[in-house]
Simulated assay, not measured.
Amino acid sequence: MKARTLAAALLLSACGLASAQDATKALGGLLRGVNPGGLLNNLTAPTPAAPAANTDELVKLLAQSVDSIDETREQEIGRQLAALLAGSKPLHPDLALQRYVNRLGRWISLQGSRPNLPWTFAVLDDPGFNAFAAPGGYVFVTKGLVDRVDEAELAGILAHEITHVNQRHHLKALAAKARAGLATQAIASQLRGNAANALSGQVLALGRNLYSSGLDQGDEFEADREGVALAARAGFDPYGLPSVLQQLRTAKPDNPLFALTLGTHPPAQQRLEQLEVAMGSRLDALSGKPSVPVAQRLQ
């Protein structure tokens, strides 16, 4: 069976979630204990349902070396940051859409270097054009993004975010910020809260700063390059992501729907130029597949 046919079959099979109830469970309990607010504007960190007792240890380990963060600790950090993202906007109520994005994301993640992570994909109910990832296998896209792309483009975006997780880009950025003293500032800002919230606040403050400022340009370029290859391995048109970048290139920086993405990523033209050099014509034979609207998959 060809990769493209297999990808489509798995999206329509039991590869992902079998029911709406399973979809809710697969979102990792993020619907609990979070408060809606403006997307990454004046973020108030949600209090985790069960704050980890070793959050202070996590921050200390981050400040020392990313290599000291094993997968269990990575997933704990990711769980807290995922709660932060899910707390900034509610999850979209369309469970069919949530199931579809989970199936698509999980299929793509199986082609990557860390297929055994407990991957979770979710759609935030926000009109903006944004996508986010958190350590340990959490990936979010906004409804506004899904509405503006086809399946191959969405696959390219998810592959880009999956690459961030696979390469531990967010952990490395958090470690750099922790070493820069932001963790100490977070402790001071949380002193008026209780001890558990203060400890949790260290990680969340680092996360808020990270999602507001973005990753290093080198990390974004790597996620573009590896994401294109990952989407191709999953059976999707490798030019899906470049097509999205073409759309971003024409977006106006003062458009509030695109402002966060444009403000936290390298210029789209620069990303396209980097991809052109990396891709050349090597993936042309895998391109030219018919566009599949997301709405068609949801029927």
Rank of each mutant, 00 (worst) to 15 (best):
R179G: 11
L40D: 07
E74P: 00
G263S: 01
P253K: 09
G37Y: 02
D150L: 08
A155E: 04
H92Y: 10
G263I: 02
G240C: 03
S13P: 08
R106W: 06
Q247N: 12
P135L: 01
L204T: 14
N102C: 03
Y239N: 11
Y211I: 03
T120N: 13
A18I: 08
L17A: 14
Y239R: 11
A83M: 12
D56E: 12
R99K: 09
T72C: 08
I187G: 07
D216N: 06
K143C: 03
L97M: 01
K143F: 14
H160K: 05
L283P: 05
S109A: 14
T47Y: 10
H164L: 01
Y211P: 02
S13I: 06
A251F: 03
A196M: 05
A268R: 05
W119I: 01
C15D: 11
L11Q: 11
L62Q: 00
L31C: 10
K60G: 12
E273Y: 07
A186N: 01
L275H: 04
T142V: 03
N41V: 14
Q274K: 12
A183D: 09
Y239H: 13
A14F: 11
R208W: 08
P256L: 05
E161I: 08
L230K: 03
R282Q: 14
A173Q: 12
K89I: 05
R297G: 15
K143H: 15
E57L: 13
L275I: 02
G37Q: 11
F129Y: 15
D70T: 04
T72N: 14
V149Q: 05
G240N: 01
A155P: 06
E276T: 11
T72M: 13
L248S: 08
P242L: 01
L11V: 12
L158E: 02
K25T: 14
S212L: 12
A205G: 15
A14T: 15
R103Q: 13
A186I: 04
E276I: 05
A18Y: 04
G137C: 08
G112D: 04
K60F: 13
G128I: 08
A131T: 04
A159C: 03
M1Y: 15
Q299M: 01
Q190I: 06
I157M: 10
G37T: 02
M279T: 09
A83I: 09
L174V: 07
P51A: 07
G280P: 01
A9P: 00
A175Q: 01
K177I: 09
F258W: 14
M1V: 14
P293T: 13
L257F: 06
S287P: 09
G38Y: 11
T5K: 13
P127Y: 04
R168T: 02
L248E: 04
F121C: 09
P90T: 01
R179K: 15
K60Q: 12
L61F: 00
P267T: 06
L171V: 15
F140S: 02
G137K: 05
V123D: 00
Q217P: 09
P253C: 03
D224W: 02
T261N: 03
G181R: 05
N116S: 15
T184W: 08
P135A: 00
A285H: 13
Q80G: 10
L182Y: 09
R249A: 14
D94G: 07
R168M: 06
A176H: 07
